[in-house]
Amino acid sequence: MSTVMTKAINLKLVRNENERSEPEVEKEVVYDTKGLNLWYGETHALKNINMDIKEKEVTAIIGPSGCGKSTYLKTLNRMVELVPIVKTSGQITYKGKNILDKSFRVEDLRTQVGMVFQKANPFPKSIYENIAYGPKIHGIKNKKILDEIVEKSLRGAFIWDELKDRLNDNAYGLSGGQQQRLCIARCLAVEPNVILMDEPTSALDPKSTLRIEELVQELKKDYAIVIVTHNMQQAARISDKTAFFLNGEIIEYDKTDHIFNNPTDERTGDYISGRFG
């Protein structure tokens, strides 16, 4: 079973490699993590994480449950602080500034870094109001501009055609997959530089999952995307780079095809071929 799966992944990767053969332009580093440690109370959840994340790339983070992958993702927009007992050391530089510095305003960070959650979490408002929420709190009041942003964001998330006639309906009437794409659109409306995705398809059916994956491929033209996933095929399909986390440490971080075809660390290979996790 596992060998068949790996083979399927390999085939896909070969194809990907062909597409990627054009010469690489040096991409700008968005996030640079150096020596990050994080504790939940007494639990040492992230250990000496070093990792850089570049623009216009999809970076996948994989690893078994409880390995710290979601924690790391939530550290990138400091959502992790919502748990009051969290302590950190080390630094994460975002565009040249250390975001873990107490003087760094987390609201600024979160304005520039969007996040999509494991379970779609639209607000109990209309579709229109869900999208307009972000621009409104950031000071855009002009109705015409808001209309344009709503259309642009929904188009960006490929659901404009499905939803354009029901913008005033409650977002809770949408299907799970639509809700998740609405949440992506909501995040696009603020025009972030980075989009963090925390297992965005784990609650979705295969068809909706595929649509989100296509969307991710489209979005990476403009954004840096970091996606946490427990679905290895998904990581292989959509990411440029993959980091493998285990027990709060990065075991391996490299180009995705390298990780999946030729892992340096034995544990990476074991995990990918389904021997644990």
């Binding site: 959502m79 609201e107 969007g114 996040m115 979490n121 607000f123 972000g134 709190i137 950031h138």
Partner: peptide, 17 residues
Amino acid sequence: PNSMREGALALGSTKLE
């Protein structure tokens, strides 16, 4: 649910908003 707060905070809202 907290997911609602997280959604708003992740867009850069202050706690008040």
